[in-house]
Design a protein around this nucleic acid. Structure first.
Length: 365
RNA sequence: GGAGAGAUAGCGAAGUGGUUAAACGCGGCAGACUGUAAAUCUGCUCCUUCGGGUUCAGUGGUUCAAAUCCACUUCUCUCCA
């Protein structure tokens, strides 16, 4: 993997990532396809929505179908018929969402399978080995995404452990895939700094900021970024994990983030919510019953070119899956288009103007 | 014509004397969702000027008290002629 910093506008960065046979510009957004599929969408639909990279998940694929199956299929790309870059998360987020504090030890994390309740154990070595088998282009260190709030003492311990886990993971890594280290530290400035410095010392292909979007306020999240960014090298990619609210993306780009991922656009789509330049709209609302205009008149996505809000509302109300699919397509295209506009504005040295205008439109509704 | 069963909020359906403005489900209205245990979850859903008001087919009655008991009326369903 190669990262080139093309230009900066303030701290906002326009970059280019070349990996395997793919090239794409950053800042970029990755739709989340946890179980080797972005829920409800085919790879063709993702590509139509101008998505250039997706995220998938180690934990879920380890449990089902198992990394060996994916390996036998020829890797994740072949298995799911998606030939653009894929990044796999390490299972670190599942430490936050599925494991209990008592299940976390120096060796690794004990999980109760969400599928059948059986006992599982994931270690940093195991996570990397699974990710090597899955064969994504970019893989992540196994970290602990600690809950918010956590005490300083706990967070310090957790940060140290995540650093040791990163070291252990690196040792077993096959080096054929790009490997990112993850900065943790919660809302504590010195821990973020320490985590960033120590992680960078290990020399990864890119650096993630984790432990965000776990219930903290937006201001706190932005501080978490501010605390870590100064210690991340300019010539490496920075990835803010789990963030995808358009406002957060703008705030993070302004601070120097290059990559984002988030379940939000696809999850809220399945729940009937569409992203628009004027803010989020809930298509279940009565006011759209006879609204025969598209979600966004100027959007070039498949949903907006062909279907009305009234029709999509009908589909959602009737629990027809096409409704969730159409909004998912729109929401992903909304974010890929937002990223296109962000890159263009950085290129033209008017990122802040773009951001201000964008926020103004949202606030007006 | 005869025998029986039943009518409960938008719909379905509990409740068969008092802690019942009435369970629950559906429908409807709104909200939440940020490295996906999520096509999920939460709230509201008789009226209200938030003090209260009016309900369980209708009317009348019994009772301190009725959706619940009695009488009649209307309607629905099942079976027998």
């Amino acid at each position: 993997m190669r990262y080139e910093l093309i230009k900066k506008d303030g701290n906002a960065r326009l970059g280019r990532i070349s990996i395997n046979d793919s090239v794409f510009e950053t800042p970029i957004f990755m739709p989340v396809g946890t179980q080797a599929t972005v829920k409800m969408l085919s790879p063709e639909e993702l590509i139509d929505a101008k998505s250039d990279i997706i995220l998938s998940n180690t934990y879920h694929l380890w449990l089902r179908p198992g990394e060996e199956i994916v390996y036998k299929a020829g890797g994740l790309h072949k298995f799911m018929n998606y030939n653009k870059p894929i990044l796999t998360d390490s299972g670190g987020y599942q430490v936050f969402s599925l494991a209990k504090p008592k299940d976390i030890s120096e060796e690794g994390v004990k999980f109760k399978s969400h599928i059948d309740g059986s006992e599982l154990f994931l270690s940093p070595e195991k996570s990397i080995e699974i990710q090597n088998k899955l064969g994504a282009d970019i893989i992540m260190s196994f970290d602990e995404c600690a809950p918010y709030p956590s005490t300083y003492e706990y967070m310090k311990e957790s940060v140290e452990r995540t650093l040791r886990w990163a070291e252990r993971g690196k040792k077993v890594h096959n080096n054929k895939q790009a490997l990112f280290g993850i900065v943790q530290g919660g809302e504590y400035e010195d821990l973020r700094k320490y985590s960033a410095i120590k992680t960078v010392e290990m020399d990864f292909d890119g650096y993630s900021i984790g432990g965000t979007s776990v219930g903290e306020s937006k201001e706190t999240m932005y501080k978490m970024i501010d605390y870590a960014i100064p210690y991340l090298p300019e010539d490496k990619t920075r990835y803010l994990m789990g963030v995808g609210d358009p406002i957060d993306i703008l705030e993070a780009v302004e601070r120097g983030i290059d990559i984002f991922d988030c379940v939000l656009p696809t999850r809220i789509a399945r729940h009937g919510n569409a992203l628009t330049r004027n803010g989020k709209i809930n298509l279940r609302n009565l006011k759209y019953k006879e609204d025969f205009s598209s979600i966004e008149e100027d959007c070039d996505c498949y949903a907006c070119k062909n279907y009305s809000k009234a029709y999509i509302r009908h589909l959602i109300m009737s629990k027809e899956t096409l409704g969730g699919r159409l909004i998912s397509i729109h929401n992903i295209r909304f974010l890929t288009r937002l990223m296109e506009d962000i890159r263009k504005s950085i290129k033209e040295d008017r990122f802040i103007e773009f951001k201000t205008e964008f926020l103004k439109n949202i606030n007006e509704v």
